[in-house]
């Protein structure tokens, strides 16, 4: 059974218990158990084909589960309430928009489908188009848009009705770095100021990791790690690491560090990395190096990122799979 993400102090907007989807003898998703609290951002990460899209379809009731259950806003999701509950959810996936309609027409249809107040709808459409940098192309046909513009419009469509829960599937996939940064800023404001709960599915971590409060890593349809980001990183790397850029002979510096109780690793660029039980040990270590005649140019704390954690976890999963095969 997968460990469950707990977000203390926040009511769960989304819960999944033992959720599974099986096609023939293949598990697309197996035993997915997670909980996402109000106003939290949950990063559901995994390589291509890991089961992220199937998970979104299960969590929104688009696909019936082979086993397990989903709870949205405290209600068990089923055919009887799916329509009502979906009105409170926004979903952006890699599906296309209507190419022969303008951006504004696409959004107007979505506003009607989500029953956005008729008097507010035109203003709200202008607002989201403005926020996502599409205001000048509001009346252009979507078929004339670049991939990146379509991607932004897909996000605009998902947030138009101000959903309480927002699923984003690779939201920055087709964006240039500047547009991706703008979108991340927008999403951050949505989460922090608007209190929107977000489930972010991606394998492109750059820029998105700053958004995530909680993390789940899917490999081969199974959640191999899940929990608050800080807890996961602290559990994996309990001692802080430092990069020391030193002059002179790095081997001599390494011997000095070892004598001071550290376990240095010589990097290919001549720098040394070392893990220390606490940050308090850094001044003593630097003093020992200086006393030994090793010039210390810089000490840079190494803070593990979600990207580091993701690759380490995926590599572990691959190693376990190889072991099992052997």
């Amino acid at each position: 059974m997968a460990a469950e993400t707990r977000t203390a102090g926040a009511a769960d907007v989304l819960r999944a218990d033992g959720l599974a989807k099986r096609y023939g003898d293949r598990d697309a998703v197996a035993d997915l158990t997670l909980a996402v609290g109000t106003g939290r951002a949950f990063g559901l990460l995994g390589p291509n084909g890991a089961g992220k899209t199937t998970s979104v379809r299960l969590l929104t009731g688009l696909l019936p589960a082979s086993a397990g259950r989903v709870e949205l806003f405290g209600e068990t999701l089923g055919p009887g309430n799916a329509s009502r509950l979906r009105a409170r959810v926004g979903v952006q996936t890699d599906t296309e928009l209507y190419a022969t309609l303008s951006a504004r027409e696409n959004l107007r249809i979505w506003g009607d489908l989500f029953d956005v107040d008729r008097r507010r709808l035109p203003g709200r459409i202008d607002e989201v188009l403005e926020m996502l940098g599409l205001a000048s192309r509001a009346d252009s046909l979507v078929g004339e848009f670049s991939k990146g513009m379509r991607q932004k419009l897909a996000v605009a469509r998902a947030v138009l009705h101000e959903p309480e829960l927002l699923f984003l599937d690779e939201p920055t996939a087709d964006l240039d770095p500047e547009a991706a940064a703008d979108l991340v800023d927008y999403l951050r404001s949505l989460i922090r100021a608007g209190g929107t709960t977000v489930v972010l599915c991606t394998h492109q971590l750059h820029g998105l990791e700053a958004l995530c409060d909680d993390l789940g890593i899917l490999v081969d349809g199974r959640l191999v790690a899940t929990g608050p980001v800080d807890d996961l990183l602290a559990a994996r790397w309990p001692t802080p690491g430092f990069r020391l850029e030193v002059g002179g002979d790095p081997a001599a510096a390494a011997r000095t560090i070892a004598a001071a109780g550290g376990a240095p690793v010589l990097e290919s660029d001549g720098a040394l990395t070392v893990a220390l039980p606490t940050e308090d040990r850094v001044p003593a270590l630097v003093a020992a190096l200086v006393a030994a005649g090793v010039p210390v140019h810089a000490v840079v704390p190494l803070r593990p990122t979600i990207t580091d954690y993701y690759f380490a976890t995926v590599d572990d999963a691959a190693a376990r799979r190889e072991e099992a095969r052997a």
Partner: peptide
């Protein structure tokens, strides 16, 4: 045209 899934996520 790959538009149908978006429609199915609506109410």
């Amino acid at each position: 045209r790959r538009t149908v899934e978006g429609l199915l996520y609506t109410p």
